[in-house]
Simulated scan of single mutants.
Amino acid sequence: MSGLFSFLKRIRNINSPPNVPAKNADALRFGILGAARIAPNALIIPAISHPDVVVLAVASRDASKASAYAKKHRISKVYSGDDCYQAVLDDPDIDVVYIPLPNGLHYEWTMRALSSGKHVLVEKPMADTPQEAQQMIELAASKNLVLLEAIHYTFHPATHRVKELLDSGELGKITGIRADFAVPDAPHGIFFLKDDVRFKYDLGGGATMDMGVYPLSAVRFFTASEPVKVSSARAVGHAADPARIDREMTARLMLQSSIEAETYADFGMSGWGPFHIFPRLLKASVHVECERGALEYFNYPLAHVFHSIKIKPQGGKERVEKAYRFADGRGQDWWSSYRYQLEAFVEQVRGRAPHYWPEADDPVRQLQWVEGIYAAADMPARPASELYSPSHDFAV
């Protein structure tokens, strides 16, 4: 019963942060490009509990949508119309731009934001191609600005506890790893919209570019090694564009130190049983095989909601751990992975040392292997982004 109470209390506090602090006079002021569905969880709610962050502006081409979004989330500045994204970049009151736009627009608007002297938090993947990501990173460095690809789970204490356990040598060297992130087929709107941007090739869509970023990054993060080849990959095409958009992708990779890895991502797993009438459950686990045992990290993409870390030593007793805050006391047990990410981002902007920060070229290496998986699955890589302003809003 105490476990259920803790769970419900944590969920309540994640969505409605307690003990809201006063904002610092010089708090970083964020502007959001696009009235995105992900922004409340990824930035707006986490910002409530951060004294050094204010979400000041939102831009949407649809004026009524922009106004309704701003009113709902108590955002004081609203930009709309054809030039609304650029208006945010031109606003001298904005310090940081959050970009949750479709993948195919990340390059253009990140480059524009950096050129305007703004720090940038951009949703994953950083770009459509490794070359684009490299240019973005180089521009940020040349302007001494902070640029972060928002792979938020890597900032959560549970993720770092798993890494600590694997690095400790308790289970011996890693020999194999499998990472999944897949959702069941569901009515439109529960996970994805009917005409979702994730199904559009020209906007950088596809399961590997969206959900697949998580298992691929998990394989690289927990092994601290890079793939040396994609052994095989199998795609199931999406009905919207089966030749170019993957609804499902399974890939096998060989990593450094002869570690075998497998990743699996799926926008809509079919049911099981007669006529597939029974829905499947969410798949979101990392399973690591080691010389002297195994480890399983359940629900790594949303560890703040609930997670478990099962340690299974050979010949020893299995145990389960959880970690909602860091051992040194940093954080709160109700902080989401997005809140931990925001904490690290602010620390980096302020010139302090965050608890964790990825290597600058990590997004480039990630996208190189995304392209390798597509090639092995006989699917085209995502196209380089065109520098244009969209004529309408995209729902993400």
Rank of each mutant, 00 (worst) to 15 (best):
D246F: 01
L145S: 02
G372P: 01
F192T: 08
F192C: 02
S258N: 15
L147V: 07
L282F: 12
G3Q: 12
G206A: 06
H307I: 01
S232F: 08
I151P: 00
A47I: 01
Q256A: 12
I48Y: 02
R382F: 08
E262R: 12
N103G: 04
R244F: 04
T250A: 06
T263Y: 02
E260P: 02
S115P: 00
R280T: 10
A150L: 01
L203C: 07
I190G: 05
H188D: 13
I137G: 00
I99Q: 02
I259W: 05
E108V: 06
P274H: 12
A384N: 12
K71W: 00
H50P: 10
S80R: 03
S64C: 03
D128E: 13
F306P: 02
D196E: 06
G189T: 06
P51H: 13
H106T: 04
G3F: 11
K71M: 10
G81W: 01
M249L: 15
S258T: 08
P46H: 10
P227F: 06
L33D: 05
N41M: 03
G315W: 07
L281A: 13
S232M: 11
A224E: 15
G117F: 09
Y214E: 08
S67T: 14
V96L: 10
A179S: 15
D62G: 02
L203F: 08
H307T: 02
A344S: 14
V88W: 06
A207S: 13
D393T: 10
P21E: 14
A87D: 14
K200Y: 04
V288Y: 09
A284V: 00
V20Q: 14
Q314T: 13
A353G: 06
S6Y: 11
F5E: 14
S257W: 05
L33H: 03
K143G: 00
Q368I: 07
F30R: 05
A36S: 14
Y98C: 13
E226V: 14
Q332Y: 11
Y338P: 00
A381P: 07
I38R: 00
V346E: 09
Y388E: 13
H160Q: 15
W109F: 15
R365G: 05
L148K: 13
L101N: 09
Y153G: 02
S389N: 11
L148N: 09
V120G: 04
A133H: 06
A36P: 00
E347S: 14
K317A: 14
D362Y: 05
I99K: 04
G268P: 12
F326N: 02
L253W: 04
L101F: 07
Q348V: 05
K194I: 02
Y214M: 09
A218C: 11
R61N: 06
E289W: 11
R252S: 07
H156I: 09
R161M: 15
R10T: 03
A294L: 01
M136Y: 10
Q86I: 00
D83M: 03
R319M: 06
D52R: 12
E248S: 11
L216I: 04
T159G: 07
I259T: 12
K143L: 04
A395S: 13
P92T: 15
A133C: 09
L387A: 13
F155K: 11
G316H: 07
H119Y: 05
R12E: 14
F345I: 06
L139M: 09
A360T: 07
H188G: 11
F192Y: 15
G329M: 08
R352I: 10
E347Y: 08
P21I: 12
G205K: 10
A59D: 07
I38C: 10
D91M: 13
E386G: 08
R292A: 15
A377N: 04
